[in-house]
Design a protein around this nucleic acid. Structure first.
Length: 841
RNA sequence: GCGAAAGUGGCGGAAUGGCAGACGCGCUGGACUUAGGAUCCAGUAGGCGCAAGCCUGUAGGGGUUCAAGUCCCCUCUUUCGCACCA
């Protein structure tokens, strides 16, 4: 007989909804607790990954409710983006319609799992009441000088008329139309996230973040210290002024290089520039007939970005015909245009030191460029003729003028100081992090609130005109170009400043912008005066516990931290970080692989819920592994969870009258023995373990295991209806704790059984379960006796036995005596309440 | 290549320096059954032994410790992130 999970689950979902227990006010006399799992893209189909993620946040929320917090666990939808456009095309519909349908479907499906979500606070990024404030934030960023437009080379598909991300380029061809991808210089909007690079490296305000996420962000930001050195361009067209000992001096234009190895500056034998470098672009323009140069640059620029930046790509280059002067020794060095230097790191120019940099070495070998040793190995003398690879280890400075003989490490600083002193450069810091390009040539996204006027230039849309509404009358899929370009009533507008005809920006924002502040909107989701009020934001933020996949370790979490810090700087919110604690949960796999349609290994949660109930599915997913690890799907595992819940049901259903009677008896616990003493211990011990696992460790698999173990202890009592009063009191208390311990994981069955045992309140209203430490004291303690690290005996003795007596007793144990025969004891160590360790010769 | 995490029975996993394998699955045997994807009982790391008990065992090797899956060093494997970053 299976327990009636279908009736129970519907019943309690209705009660929770009616009592609005998951719809917290912003201010109550309780302390606020904000738990948030990353909002989903509304695919319309609930999959096991959703159930797994939101089962974790739901468990946390319910534990915190039991603890007496005012808990917010909101839900919304990350509903802009490319997949919605594609979905609409497939279904011959419009993204607004299909997206809203999907949202409704998912809302229902989430409810069918019994998640305690605050739907009153639902946000959906594609709705004007939300994206309006995204545009507002864009404007604020712009006003603070954190938004700019920059021309840069992008993967461009002529056929689709859009920019492609690196991962959307397959072997140099567009992933969608398969036409060749070229590099096009385009104006794109950028957010100056690099302004916050330094603060984003500071993780000290997080209460608990996984080490590896912080490491990934650190690596991504990639701070490195080095020196910027100015090389003077020979025969340059323009000139610039430079300060020297005597005052200002006129020199040629400067080629600035960034290096982490200023100690090798005397070993520079050529300069390497990428074809994108502005000087190179200028030379190209000045020499339209220089065919080899044009061909080489064109080829490199249009090379697939991924391929070009792969380490094993062969280094290629061409001599530009230009020279520059090494400021430290006046050497005239050739300037080469190469494919191995990238424009957007450092200064986009490299001083090449083949003797001490492997890439430069390979390049110099290939093109027969000179190699000059300036760091000498202390043990084996290096010689240019015999070098097989660059020498990048430590050594003495040689051929380095006044620095000869110094060790190269201190020489780095000495040379930098000297260069700075001579105004030839300076110490500097460079980041790998680049500014955030937010322009997308796509329809289904948040319009950028910008108007272009021939007279006034770039003009922000005034606040009163926000939101810039995304027009609906777009033929999705009918055009391959940016769809907004084909909506004249959107494009054509008037300039807010001069009133003349003007046109709108047709790019939309990267959807990562939408997800960079939604957590704050939940605090005040219906505010139509501002993105959220400071009061409400401060009452909830930072998110106490954020939950999401590791795939968002860098992008989303870095962008959200950036925007949050910006909002803080605007005075909108006080805290420095948006997410105090972060849990990166694993994914649900089957046959060792992520569930996906293409692999055909998808399990439909709806089927499991219909057949075994939502509680079973949740218990299975939480029990299978700790939250941060992947869960391997197992049909047998689901059965195991179902069997467990059925056992709980049978126990309490069968004996509910007996248990209720037992609860009315006083339980002093002093008048039982044996099995019942053990059972009483089990009750208190299980609560202790459960509290530790749910509150401190957030390890739900072991919390559930503890409940299972306790259930085994309870069901080992035979014929409970024949117990005496004292025994029954213990038995009843052992039973009644089970629904409460099960509540965060299997809330429906828990509430039902709790009610059947005569309780009038909901479980969370009854507070956290507690245990009595004095009930954890056993009559006897089992000691293990180790000899040289091996277990040689056991003994059960009174817990308050003094250490000296414990030693004596241990030596009396039969097998211990035997093992010790004829041996000398070095040392006896007593670990109180646990073991005796004896070291012998 | 750099950085990070991990490696435990047939499987998922547990063990906060203190009895390795909790709990669940699977499997074996039994009970009840016309029947079982039901329920209940017993067993289940490997080896030796009639037994008491002994030996081996947490990827491999070394070390610290009375005591190591856990801490340290080296090697291997896997996964993830970054990747010509000057």
């Amino acid at each position: 007989m299976e327990y009636p999970f279908q009736d129970i689950e519907k019943k309690w979902q209705k009660i929770w909804q009616e009592k609005k227990i998951f719809n917290p006010l912003n201010k109550t006399d309780k302390q606020n607790y904000y738990v948030l799992a990353m909002f989903p893209y509304p695919s319309g189909i609930l999959h096991c990954g959703h159930v797994s993620n939101y089962s974790i946040s739901d468990a946390i929320a319910r534990v915190k409710m039991m603890e007496g917090f005012n808990v917010m666990n909101p839900m919304g939808f990350d509903s802009f983006g490319m997949p919605a456009e594609n979905y609409a095309i497939q279904h011959n519909s419009h993204p607004r319609i299909t997206t809203e349908e999907c949202i409704e479907a998912m809302h229902k499906q989430f409810d069918s799992v019994g998640f305690g979500l605050d739907w009153d606070r639902e946000v959906s990024t594609c709705r004007p009441d939300y994206y309006r404030w995204g545009q507002f934030i864009f404007k604020k960023l712009y006003e603070k000088g954190l938004v700019y437009r920059k021309k840069s080379f992008q993967n461009w598909c002529e056929e689709c008329q859009t920019v492609l991300a690196n991962e959307q380029v397959e072997n140099g061809h567009c992933w969608r139309c398969e036409s060749e991808v070229t590099q096009k210089e385009l104006e794109q909007w950028y957010f100056k996230i690099t302004e916050y690079a330094e603060e984003l490296l500071d993780f000290s305000k997080m209460i608990e973040w996984p080490e590896r996420v912080m490491t990934m962000q650190k690596n991504w930001i990639g701070k490195s210290f080095g020196t910027e050195i100015d090389f003077v361009l020979e025969n340059s067209m323009d000139s610039c002024l430079r300060r020297n000992d005597e005052g200002l001096e006129e020199t040629g234009e400067l080629v600035k290089v960034f290096t982490t190895r200023p100690d090798t500056i005397f070993g520079v034998t050529f300069m390497a520039l990428p074809p994108e470098h502005p000087y190179v672009q200028r030379w190209l323009a000045a020499e339209p007939d220089n065919k080899p140069l044009h061909e080489f640059c064109h080829m490199v620029i249009n090379e697939d970005k991924i391929e070009r930046t792969a380490e094993d790509t062969t280094k290629e280059g061409i001599f530009s015909g230009k020279y520059c002067i090494n400021p430290v020794n006046g050497d005239k060095v050739q300037i080469w245009i190469t494919n191995y230097v990238v424009m957007d790191y450092g200064t986009g120019a490299v001083m090449a030191v083949p003797a001490h940099d492997q890439r430069d070495f390979e390049f110099a070998k290939k093109y027969n460029l000179p190699i000059k040793i300036v760091i000498q190995n202390k043990e084996h003398n290096l010689a240019v003729e015999t070098m097989q690879e660059a020498y990048i280890e430590e050594g003495w400075q040689v051929n380095s003028a006044q620095f000869d003989g110094m060790e190269n490490e201190p020489a780095k600083k000495a040379i930098t100081d000297w260069i700075a002193d001579k105004n030839m450069g300076k110490q500097t810091v460079t980041y790998r992090l680049r500014d955030w390009g937010v322009s997308r040539q796509r329809y289904w996204g948040n319009p950028i609130p910008i108007i272009y006027c021939d007279d006034c230039g770039v003009v922000l849309v005034p606040d009163k005109d926000l939101p810039v509404l995304l027009p609906d009358n777009v033929q999705v899929g009918k055009t391959t170009r940016n769809p907004l370009l084909s909506v004249p009533e959107f494009v054509n507008t008037t300039c807010p400043q001069c009133g003349k005809a003007a046109r709108r920006e047709t790019d939309t924002m990267d959807t990562f912008v939408d997800s960079s502040w939604y957590f704050a909107r939940y605090a005040d989701p219906k505010n139509d005066k501002e993105p959220f009020s400071k009061e409400n934001a401060n009452s909830w933020l930072p998110v106490d516990q954020y939950i999401g996949g590791i795939e968002h370790a860098v992008m989303h979490l870095l962008y959200a931290r950036f925007i949050h810090k910006f909002m803080r700087d605007l005075g909108w919110v006080d805290c420095d970080e948006p997410f105090a604690r972060l849990l990166t949960q694993g994914m649900v796999t089957k046959d060792g692989a992520k569930m996906s349609k293409s692999k055909g290994n998808v399990v439909d949660p709806k089927y499991i819920i219909d057949r075994y109930g939502a509680d079973t599915l949740r218990v299975f997913l939480l029990f299978a592994s700790p939250p941060e690890k992947d869960v391997e799907w197992s049909d047998d595992g689901v059965m195991g969870a179902f069997r467990f819940l059925n056992r709980v049901w049978r126990l309490i259903e069968t004996y509910k009258d007996t248990i209720r009677k037992g609860l009315s008896y006083c339980s002093s616990g002093q008048d039982v023995s044996g099995q019942f003493k053990d059972l009483q211990y089990s009750t208190h011990h299980t609560v202790k373990k459960w509290l530790d696992d749910t509150e401190k460790r957030m390890q739900y698999n072991t919390a559930i295991a503890a409940v299972m173990e306790h259930l085994n202890n309870v069901t080992s009592i035979k014929e409970p209806n024949k117990l005496n009063e004292a025994e029954l009191a213990v038995f009843a208390r052992a039973c009644v704790i089970i629904p409460r311990l099960l509540y965060p994981f299997a809330p429906h069955i828990a509430e039902e059984l709790w009610q059947q045992l005569g309780n009038k309140h909901l479980i969370h209203e009854s507070g956290m379960p507690t245990y009595k430490p004095e009930r954890l004291i056993r009559d006897t303690i089992s000691y293990v006796i180790q000899i040289n690290g091996k277990v040689r005996g056991k003994m059960d003795i009174a817990p308050d036995t003094p250490d000296e007596k414990v030693k004596e007793l241990a030596l009396e144990v039969e097998n211990v005596k035997k093992t010790l025969e004829g041996k000398t004891i070095h040392k006896i160590i007593v670990i109180p309440q646990k073991m005796v360790s004896i070291a012998i010769s």
